[in-house]
Nucleic acid binder design. Structure first.
Lengths: 141, 141
DNA sequence: GATAGAGTTTCCAGTTACTGGAAGGTCAAG
DNA sequence: CTTGACCTTCCAGTAACTGGAAACTCTATC
C-alpha cells in the first residue's frame, strides 16, 4: 500500500511516517516508481509506534520496545520495568501540574477581574505586594 | 550587576538570560567593556519571567503578560482570562496523563514480569491478542 | 494525446525554549 | 605576567515533528 493509505490505517500523518523512516523506525520497500510500498508488517510497526507514542513513550523508548518486541528471547520483565518507569514519570508530571493548578487557581480567585488596573496575578508574578512599577523596561537606547 | 549575579538572583541560567535578551524579553544596558549591566528593573523582569515560566506560561504568553504589566491601563480581566485559559490547559493535561496512567497500570498489572518471553504490554502495543510475530521488520534489502 | 488534480518524492527550513561548546576578550589575584 | 574566572558572540544541536518548494508520477477526463 502507498503511504497515504498506511497513514490512514496507522493513524499517523504522512509526514511522520517519512520521518520515522528517516530515523530508522520503519523500512518500507520501494515500488518501481520510487513510491514507498508498505507491507502488512510495516503497517503493524506503524500502529505499534502510534500506540506507544500516544502512551507517552519517547522515540528512543519506542525503539527499545520494538527491539524488545523483536527479540524472541527477551523477558517480559524488561518491558514491565520500562513501563513502570514510565508510570512514575507520569505520576510526577501529574503532581507537578496539580500544584501548578493550585497556584493558578489561587491567583484567579484573588483577582477581581474587572476594569481596574491592579491585579493580584501580575503582582504575584512581579513578586511585589502592591502594584509598583518595578519592572517596566526603559525605552531609552 | 553582571549576568552571573543576575542569574543567581533571578534563578535563571546565564544562557537563558542571554536568550531572553535575544528574543527581546529583556534589554539590559552595556558597560564600557561590553558586559551586560543589569539594573534593578531588569532583574525584576527576569524574576517575573522565571516565575511565569515555572507556572507554565509560554514565552509568548510571558511577553503578553509583560506587556499587560507595562500597560498602566490594562484591565485585570485580561490577565484573569489568560490565567483561566492556562488553568483549563493544565486541567486537560492532567486528565490526559491520568488516563495514560490508567492504561499503563492495567498493562503492568497484566504482565507477569518474569523470564517468559510473552508479555501483555508488547501484545497490546502490537495490537495483537496473542504474541504472533506480526511486526518484525524484514532484514532483506 | 493534452491536461488537470491528486499523490508522491527529496530537501531545506522552522518550530519551542533552551543548552553546549568553541574562540576569543576582560578582569582580579598572586 | 600568568592563571583562572567571567564575559562576549556565534554556531550547532536537542525532540519530534511540521510546512513548504520543486519536481516527478498516476489517474481521470476531454
Amino acid at each position: 500500500m502507498n503511504i497515504s493509505l498506511a497513514a490512514e490505517r496507522s493513524g499517523l500523518p504522512v509526514k511522520t511516517i517519512r520521518y520515522y523512516e528517516d530515523i530508522g523506525l520503519v523500512r518500507p520497500g520501494r515500488s518501481e516508481n520510487g513510491y514507498r510500498e508498505f507491507a502488512e508488517p510495516d503497517l503493524q510497526r506503524l500502529k505499534f509506534l502510534q500506540r506507544a507514542r500516544s502512551l507517552g513513550f519517547s522515540i528512543e523508548e519506542c525503539r527499545e520496545l520494538l527491539s524488545l518486541y523483536e527479540d524472541r528471547h527477551r523477558a517480559s520483565a524488561d518491558v514491565k520495568a520500562l513501563t513502570r518507569t514510565k508510570i512514575s514519570e507520569v505520576d510526577r508530571k501529574i503532581a507537578e501540574l496539580q500544584s501548578l493548578k493550585k497556584v493558578l487557581s489561587t491567583l484567579v480567585d484573588a483577582c477581581h477581574g474587572d476594569n481596574r488596573p491592579d491585579c493580584p496575578i501580575i503582582d504575584d508574578l512581579a513578586g511585589t505586594s502592591g502594584g509598583e512599577a518595578a519592572i517596566t523596561q526603559s525605552t531609552e537606547k
